[in-house]
């Protein structure tokens, strides 16, 4: 009973704070609202016994949202909370698609005859995850590793100032007409 009350309270918090992300003017508030949504989902994972995954979800997403606030402040150039303006497009079509998706997913969740539970959780879930990662699921982890490394390289190449993709126009061979600064790739 207590678990049910806690679950529904967390569910309301997760969905409400998720909706708040796109309702508030302040980018910082939107980011913190998303962090609250992730914390609520992380606690729900802890409720179903996934302590390790739930805790790393909370820790990772709180740090990620803290970084996201910095990016918001860097790129916005102005404060929408002080200068309200609409930075959305096709709100009606988006809402229709979102509601349609929810109806479809909810119908699937309610109408599908889900099978009975097979097996029982291990006594120590974190230890069983560790054994899986270092044993039969090692190939999955070995695949993720180069993907993450490639992400680091690609992110640096794309975001690098005066690098391959920091140029005017789409002609990769065109030289910059006037370049007040020396340095950079091919300059």
């Amino acid at each position: 009973m207590l678990i049910d009350i806690l679950f529904w309270a967390l569910a309301v918090v997760a969905v409400a704070s998720g909706a708040t992300v796109f309702a508030v003017d302040s980018m910082a508030r939107a980011t913190y609202a998303l962090a609250i949504s992730f914390i609520a989902v992380g606690i729900m994972l802890v409720i179903v016994g996934l302590e390790y995954i739930g805790i790393i979800t909370i820790l990772m997403m709180v740090m990620e949202m803290a970084i996201m606030v910095v990016y918001m402040v860097m790129y916005m150039g102005m404060n929408p909370a002080l200068m309200p303006m609409d930075m959305t497009h096709n709100k009606r079509g988006s809402a229709v698609l979102a509601v349609g998706t929810f109806v479809l997913l909810a119908a699937g969740a309610l109408l599908i005859p889900w099978p009975a539970r097979v097996g029982a959780p291990a006594a120590d879930l974190t230890a069983s995850l560790g054994h899986a990662i270092m044993g039969p699921k090692m190939l999955a982890m070995l695949t993720i590793s180069p993907v993450l490394f490639a992400t680091i390289i690609a992110g640096l190449v794309i975001a690098n100032p005066r690098g391959r993709y920091d140029r005017w126009g789409d002609d990769l061979k065109r030289r910059p007409p006037t370049d007040p600064m020396r340095g950079g790739l091919g300059r």
Binding site: G18, F22, N90, A98, V99
Partner: peptide, 13 residues
């Protein structure tokens, strides 16, 4: 599903 749909609305709009 509710979380997914709210996120979809945000990603599109």
């Amino acid at each position: 599903a509710a979380l997914f749909s709210v996120g979809l609305y945000g990603a599109l709009s």
